[in-house]
Write a protein that binds this DNA or RNA. Structure first.
Length: 300
DNA sequence: GGCCAGGACTCAA
DNA sequence: TTGAGTCATGGC
């Protein structure tokens, strides 16, 4: 079997990352097992199934199908788990906040899990707008199972997210039949067109400052401030992004800081000022705090 | 059965 | 530029 070994940094916990990837939701783009995660990648346009496990001080990546392209696979895993980040500065900021300091130990080593593919990140954030996450994952699964690429391995199906060229050719009616709202169907098809026609790409946004990238994204129909920040945080790892308008974020801040359920923008900016350059990590850890609560409630 | 979900858009004033 | 209405449907 083809194996790759990838060293991990300090302040890294594979179990914490797996926990976030699992979270009681039905994600069709990876499969979490007891001590590993399986994911189908597109390497050189070829499907490649990998399984990642943690050993002492490094990850073991088993290449189950496809080409063992070490550099590309390591690059993907590094982006996905945000392995090149030194989290110490972030933990030093958390330590200064009495209400959040517990996260340093409770969530120690949790990395901002990314969505390296920008098109997928944008589609996912649009799907997730204003609906509960369980339903959002269902919609993503329907879309992926119908229009994505499937590879079966040992009796289980693994998927690649649909390509923009495929989504761009769909009709609103086809997506409506999968219970997408008319608006979301229009947004997804239009964004797929901007990608397939090379009007927008991850490379283009990487050339821009975060403020410029947000401006460029918000100009596209269906992408508001929340979606732009979410996509930049998850795909380009722009750590200064805050998902303003995010209900989950507000719930977490309400629980931990006593902020109102609909906090004022000014109060949010005051809060995030203490986490400059680490805003996205702060949001991510706040989401993590919600998941704990949900899981506790569900297990009762 | 009603309210809320990891929002965005439209249109009136 | 601000606020209310609208979109869609599942989960609780």
């Amino acid at each position: 079997m083809n194996q790759i070994f990838l060293p991990v940094p300090a302040q890294f916990s594979f179990q914490e990352c797996l926990w976030f990837l699992d979270r009681n939701y039905d994600d069709c783009l990876h499969e979490v097992r007891e001590n590993s995660v399986l994911k189908l990648l597109s390497i050189h346009e070829k499907p490649t199934l990998i399984e990642i496990k943690a050993l002492d001080n490094h990850l073991q990546i088993d290449v189950l199908t496809g080409e063992c392209a070490k550099d590309e696979i390591c690059h993907f895993v590094t982006e996905w788990f945000d392995l090149e980040r030194d989290l110490m500065p972030f933990y030093q900021l958390l330590a200064k906040d009495d209400d959040l300091a517990y996260m340093i130990t409770d969530y120690h080593g949790l990395r901002l899990l990314g969505i390296p593919d920008l098109f997928e990140a944008l589609c996912w954030s649009i799907i997730g707008q204003q609906i509960n996450l369980s339903f959002a994952y269902k919609l993503k699964r329907r879309l992926t199972e119908t229009y994505g690429y499937k590879q079966t391995y040992e009796g289980k199906d693994f998927y690649l997210f649909p390509k923009p060229e495929i989504i761009a050719k769909l009709t609103v009616e086809e997506l409506r039949n999968m219970q997408f709202s008319t608006r979301k169907a229009e947004y997804l098809i239009e964004i797929a067109r901007t990608f397939s026609e090379k009007i927008l790409s991850k490379t283009m946004l990487e050339e821009l400052s975060t403020a410029e990238a947000i401006k460029a994204l918000v100009a596209i129909r269906g992408i508001g401030e929340w979606t732009a920040n979410y996509a930049l945080m998850k795909s380009l790892k722009r750590l200064e992004c805050v998902t303003y308008g995010d209900v989950g974020l507000y719930n977490a801040l309400n629980a931990l800081k006593g902020l109102p359920k609909k906090p004022l923008r000014a109060d949010l900016e005051i809060f995030f000022k203490a986490f400059q350059k680490w805003e996205a990590y702060t949001v991510f850890y706040l989401w993590r705090s919600l998941a704990v609560k949900n899981k506790a409630i569900q297990s009762i």
